[in-house]
Structures are given as structure tokens and as C-alpha cells.
Amino acid sequence: MKLSLRINGAARQVEVDGDTPLLWVLREELGLLGTKFGCGAAFCGACTVLMGDVPVRSCSLPVSEVGDGAVTTIEGIAGREAMAVQRAWIAGDVPQCGYCQSGQIMGAIALLKATKRPTDSDIDQAMSGNLCRCATYVRIREAIHAAARDLEGPR
């Protein structure tokens, strides 16, 4: 089927089988390869993108259900929270293999949009669906706190 999607602020036309998960449309039709496949079943968070400000698992969302939702992938992140998160991730040298990190960053951006100064338990709750086999969790937690401090700073 033919669909018109809103991806990273632009209208994109695709022609795909309607049950194709958004993940594969992003990766194979639109060449947005930063969003990863880890489990295909909403267990790992590697495929996390934002729909508006809400994190969604793109591996488990049929593209026909995306409608006119504004989808943001790692390639299209913008705005204060996103930049603070990305800066903190780089400054904290968070990634090891790096495979989960697009999903982690999307999750962290959504968290900071919803909660200005997340506590450790806010982070546990928001981020425990984003698995990291390299267990970079110590640095993920530190980076989220650092980004929150950065956002609170004088501006």
C-alpha cells in the first residue's frame, strides 16, 4: 500500500506491505539505519523512535498504524533535550558496542521531555525496557543526570 509518513519533520511517501513494522520501513525504504533491530518483539528497545514526544518500539508498530504521527529517529533529533542528551552521551563516553545506543538516546530524550529532573527510580522506570548487553547502564544513568543538570543551567 501507498502511505505518506511524517519522518523527522518531512513528508515521506512509501509503498510497502501494510503490516510491515515501522522499523523496516525506516531502515529499508528510507535508509534511516540508525534505528536498530534487536528482538522484533518490544523486549529490548533497540528500535525506539519518538512518536510526538512518546517513545515507541518501531519493531512492533505496523506502518499502516502510524497515520500522521510525527516520527523522530536518531537522525532527526533536535531541540534542547535532544541536544543535551546527545552531548551528555558523548561527554560521558557511554557506548561500548554501541548497538543499543540510538534506542537509549531516544528513550532518554523522551524521559527528559516528560520529567525535568528525573530521580534514579524515574530512570529505572523509563529506561528498563532499553536493554544493553554491554551493560553500559552506569554511564547511561550518569549521562541522563548530566543532561538534566545541563538543561537546568542558566540559559
Binding site: 534505528t35 536518531i74 558523548i90 563516553d93 557506548p95 545506543q101
Partner: peptide, 8 residues
């Protein structure tokens, strides 16, 4: 490799 891994 950090920057590449934080920008997808």
C-alpha cells in the same frame, strides 16, 4: 567511535 555511535 563514540560520536558515530551517539548519532546513529
Amino acid at each position: 567511535d563514540t560520536v558515530a555511535k551517539c548519532t546513529g
